[in-house]
Structure formats: structure tokens, C-alpha cells
């Protein structure tokens, strides 16, 4: 099994708090982490490799500093890391990102499975996984919560739905996006960390993957951001006082519209 895992580096929101007055996010000094959903995709890939053999290649499209998440991926069990990085990629929307990743995946040779996280926690679009599958012209299933079986060129998976789940069969090569209850990601091993330190991270540029100029970066993005603004802060806040009985009385009074 040749498995490719798509990983995004995102800002860590762990210790971030909203400023209650301005309702803006304090981003100062925020470090970068591997997108949490992608950790689950990587873990699933490594588990498949441990069971069925093969290789796991982690790829990430991003600035040079995104190399760090690829090293982290290697420390968690990936065999290789490939960074897709070029200034020409900057400003890509989900269409251009899907295109760029598809070119990169194709340039890496044959694969059996591409795994992605359901969505990235900074953009929250959940569009790149399906977009990539479309660009690669491979079948895909989103929001996979379990891989039931994987053999003989096909797989049976459970796709989480809003009201339960579907059991779906699809042929390989294919693409899956995964949700977080598919597995419990491991902590990077000592050996993995040593390997990650020494690993050579291959860098692919726009020219390396044969990307067409009008399909990448800002120029390749059908959508365009026209304005960015901070949402208005939430309205008045009331802190009730008095005994528990009294506080509840006041609350019930205010909630009458909902009763």
C-alpha cells in the first residue's frame, strides 16, 4: 500500500483567548501545529502500513516553515515528507489548493490511498479533500469514522452522517477524509524523532509539479476575498446575583420567549 497523507500546518489555538472587549483573537506569539484532523489521517495511514506493509508519504503545501509538520509526521511513523512550496502558490483558495495538491500527488507516482483530515481548523472549509479527489479523478468518501476492511483493491468504510452513518464500499485507489473518532493518534516515538531530525524533506516547486500558472496561487483561485472584518462583539451580558433560587427566577423570566 502506498499511502499519501495530506497535512496542513495551522496556527495553534490552544492558549488563545478572545479579548472580551474587542472580540478579537489575540494571535500574538501563536505557534504552529499540525492540523488536528490531519493527525488522525496520519495515524490511520501508519496503522494500515503497520498491518499491511507499504509506505506512508506525508505531503504539505505551505511556506518553508511547514517543513516542521512534515518532520513531525515522520516522527509519528511516516516514511517520507514532501513539501510543496513556492511563492507562486500563495493566496490559493480551495480550488487552486486542490489543483496544486493533485499535481503534486501525480508527480509522486502511483498511490493506493490518499488520506486527508476532514477539514483544517483555520479555514474550516472541508473542500480540499473532495476537490483533490475530483482533480485526481478518484472515488472518495468524506468524514470516515472507521475503515472496516481493506483488501483486494477495495475498501469498506463507515462515513459519519448527521443522523448516523453509512457503510460504503469503494475501489482503490481512492481518497478518504477522516473525522477524529476514527482513532487515537500516537505520541511521536523516540526513534521516530531521531529519524525525523535527520530526514531529508523533498521540496517541490510549481515547476517541479508542472503546474500551470493560471491554476495556482491567487491567480488560479476563482474566489477572491474582498474584505476581512472583525464581527461585532456580542450584545449585553448579564451576570445574575442573589441566591440560586433568585438567579434561576431571573433567568426563567428572560427565557420566556423560548418556553
Amino acid at each position: 500500500m502506498n499511502i499519501i497523507v495530506c497535512i496542513k500546518q495551522v496556527p495553534d489555538t490552544k492558549d488563545v483567548r478572545l479579548d472580551p472587549k474587542t472580540n478579537t483573537m489575540a494571535r500574538e506569539g501563536v505557534s504552529s501545529i499540525m492540523n488536528p484532523f490531519d493527525r488522525h489521517a496520519l495515524e490511520e495511514a501508519v496503522r494500515i502500513k503497520e498491518e499491511a506493509g507499504g509506505t506512508v508519504t506525508a505531503i504539505s503545501m505551505g511556506p518553508p516553515q511547514a517543513e516542521a509538520v512534515l518532520r513531525e509526521a515522520i516522527s509519528c511513523g511516516a516514511d517520507d515528507g514532501v513539501l510543496i512550496s513556492d511563492r507562486a502558490f500563495a493566496g490559493a483558495d480551495t480550488w487552486a489548493t486542490s489543483y496544486t495538491l493533485a499535481r503534486a500527488v501525480s508527480s509522486l507516482g502511483n498511490f493506493d490511498l490518499v488520506l486527508c483530515g476532514k477539514q483544517a481548523i483555520d479555514g474550516d472549509t472541508a473542500q480540499v479533500g473532495p476537490g483533490l479527489a475530483c482533480q485526481l479523478d478518484r472515488p472518495y468518501v468524506t468524514c470516515v469514522q472507521k475503515i472496516r476492511s481493506l483488501a483486494d483493491g477495495e475498501m469498506i468504510v463507515e462515513r459519519m452522517m448527521d443522523d448516523g452513518y453509512d457503510v460504503v464500499r469503494l475501489p482503490l485507489p481512492a481518497l478518504l477524509t477522516v473525522v477524529k473518532n476514527i482513532n487515537e493518534p500516537r505520541v511521536p516515538s523516540l526513534r521516530g524523532k531521531m529519524k525525523a531530525k535527520k530526514a531529508e524533506i523533498k521540496v517541490l516547486t510549481a515547476a517541479d509539479i508542472g503546474a500551470e500558472k493560471q491554476c495556482i496561487g491567487l491567480a488560479g483561485s476563482p474566489t477572491q476575498v474582498v474584505s476581512v472584518f472583525t464581527p461585532p462583539p456580542r450584545g449585553n451580558r448579564t451576570v445574575f446575583t442573589g441566591t440560586v433560587e433568585e438567579q434561576i427566577g431571573q433567568l426563567v423570566e428572560r427565557l420566556k420567549a423560548y418556553l
Binding site: R186, V187, P188, S189, L190, R191, G192
Partner: peptide
């Protein structure tokens, strides 16, 4: 088991027996 996967049980074992 998580610790084992992270190689923590290898810390105190000599290298020739698979430790660190």
C-alpha cells in the same frame, strides 16, 4: 501501550537489545 509505541520502555535497555 502508548508509552511502548513511543519507545519509552527502551530508555533503560542497552542498544544491543533494542533499547537506547
Amino acid at each position: 501501550q502508548d508509552m511502548a509505541r513511543a519507545d519509552l520502555f527502551g530508555i533503560f535497555v542497552p542498544e544491543q537489545y533494542g533499547g537506547f
